[in-house]
Design a protein around this nucleic acid. Structure first.
Lengths: 120, 120
DNA sequence: TCCTGGTTACAGAATTGTGCGTAATTTACA
DNA sequence: TGTAAATTACGCACAATTCTGTAACCAGGA
């Protein structure tokens, strides 16, 4: 994150998706709107702080939309933007690739019936 | 990298592709076999140590094949394995997604003529 | 007082870069 | 002909940088 705009779209995309949480959050947001605390429950190993940071990063990248409803207790909704939704199948494809590769590693026959719906 | 096998193929894939270099290296290896020094030339900002580590990571993941030819000066060839080659279009799709998203951001019309051949 | 979403301060962990060493052959040069 | 230096792909130790986690704190209504 030191210098420049890399001009390479792949690099830019990976700058956002790199790390453990972004794709996981996308995965959980596929189902629809979630609140901050929902996402914490969905995966208990993210720290409070990191979740806030990651969500902000995704928001800045235009992948996630943040909607704060006025009033207390605070309520903030997160959901995917249209670009974010378009990203989901690509990420699923990566999961499918992994399973395909796994077949390679375990020396199984070259299965072609990979389901793109890669569950958790 | 602390604990477990996550059982989630997306997470596993991202564990390999996360970071600045993996996708870039894939990009440069698309063209065919490269030597260590070629890859350093291709992008001068990787330190030799990191390049070695990243290449080993990709090798362990079955994405890149390392071929050391005996004799001195050492000569080592790197190229994509079949799974690695299968990964390339997916990564290109991420680049295409970024450019599409860029259209969103800059408020342009929803162009459909995104070229998958995302150059450096 | 608790709840929710978030920020800040500080600490510890992880990742990355720097520079040096190494192998056996070729080339450089007197 | 002898010798010194360059070459290639790293490994290693150590320093610098970055990332992540913990804990405390804030807001204001129930």
């Amino acid at each position: 994150m030191k210098d420049v705009v890399s001009r390479c779209p792949i690099e830019e995309t990976m700058r956002v998706l790199s790390g453990r949480w972004p794709t996981l959050l996308l995965y959980y947001l596929k189902d629809g709107t979630k609140r901050f605390s929902d996402l914490r429950r969905d995966n208990p190993t993210v720290s409070h702080r990191i979740l806030a940071l990651e969500l902000r990063k995704l928001e800045d990248a235009g992948i996630v939309r943040r909607t704060a409803r006025p009033g207390y207790p605070l309520r903030v909704d997160y959901d995917l933007t249209p670009p974010g939704s378009r990203l989901v199948p690509l990420i699923d494809a990566l999961g499918a690739w992994w399973m395909d590769t796994d077949d390679d590693r375990t020396g199984r026959s070259p299965t072609s019936d990979v389901n793109l719906d890669t569950a958790a």
